[in-house]
């Protein structure tokens, strides 16, 4: 086999993994601060994919641009959802949180099925079938653009948490909730902001995902599972870990497809998950608690 094939497969894995990473970043941010696991994460991603599909179909807006307004709307949805619903479950038993968010996920899956039907909803971009020839390596345009946009969105989120007062306050909540409340931080509002930011990541990732895959209702649980694997491998609550986990899963799946069998790609992800849970339960970039 031509050696460039291996390089090509690794590049594909990295690019897809970055978009997965952005999606998982939202899950990690929400859990890291609010300590609620969003079991409707993949379903929200699919809603964002449908939003990108609608904006492209009705207004001709490229998903790479649509990711910005979609992220803003999803921020609003997340903010409102946290204040109106999720906040009541913060601090309650995990199984109650689980039932709430799984219920939400079921509603979303069936709602999208009712509204959009079972057929895949793709966007037909003018460059959707184009690719770059970098020496002997072929790289999809859409995958490259989506990965670059995912990296930019993740960087913006990192900078927000690192350099803005609000970002610092959210980190304070994550590190020491009691201390944050004692110094007068509005925890309820900061939680809502965090949930909003988590869903904004999902909105952006969903819009980008629409360029790679086609929106279908049943993708929701699949994406939730992928996001879980990524954040557990990368480290639950770690932002860098989500991106690293995404890339690692992307590459390992791609190489497994080439060397073992394409139908066993998912098995390799789960094997990696088990390996991390055994050897480093806090995840690659996670902190031991």
């Amino acid at each position: 086999m031509n050696p460039s094939i291996y390089l090509e497969v690794v590049v594909q894995g990295v690019l897809t993994g970055l978009v997965y990473g952005l999606m998982a970043l939202g899950l990690s941010v929400i859990f890291g601060v609010v300590r609620v696991v969003n079991f409707a994460h993949g379903e929200f991603t699919v809603v964002a994919m449908y939003a990108a599909f609608l904006l492209f179909t009705l207004a001709g807006i490229d998903p790479l641009i649509a990711m910005v307004p979609i992220a803003v709307v999803f921020f609003g949805i997340g903010y409102a959802l946290q204040l109106a619903l999720v906040h009541r479950f913060v601090g309650r038993a995990e199984h109650e949180q689980f039932i709430l968010l799984v219920g939400l996920a079921i509603i979303i899956v069936n709602g999208t099925l009712l509204i959009f039907g079972a057929d895949a909803r793709p966007v037909r971009l003018s460059y959707g079938f184009d690719s770059f020839l970098l020496g002997p390596v072929i790289v999809d345009k859409v995958r490259l653009y989506a990965a670059a946009a995912a990296l930019a969105a993740a960087t913006a989120l990192f900078l927000f948490f690192r350099f803005t007062p609000t970002g610092t306050a959210i980190r304070a909540c994550a590190d020491n909730l009691v201390g944050a409340a004692v110094v007068g931080l509005d925890v309820r509002k900061l939680y809502a902001l965090t949930f909003g930011l988590g869903l904004a990541c999902v909105g952006a990732a969903g819009a980008l995902m629409e360029t790679i895959a086609d929106a279908k209702p049943e993708l929701g649980p699949v994406y939730t599972l992928i996001a879980f694997i990524i954040v557990i491998v990368g480290g639950l609550g770690s932002m860098t870990g989500a991106l690293v986990g995404g890339v690692l899963i992307g590459i390992s799946e791609a190489l497994a497809g080439l060397f073992i069998a394409p139908s066993m790609k998912s098995m390799v992800s789960f094997a990696l998950l088990i390996l991390v849970l055994v050897l480093r339960p806090q995840g690659i970039m996670g902190r031991r608690t």
Binding site: I5, V9, Q12, T16, E253, G257, P262, S263, K265
Partner: peptide, 19 residues
């Protein structure tokens, strides 16, 4: 070559076939 019909894309499969 067997593949998972629920896979997100078939890029690796196609790369393998192209080879």
């Amino acid at each position: 070559i067997a593949y998972d019909p629920r896979a997100q894309d078939l890029s690796v499969e196609v790369t393998k076939i192209r080879a």
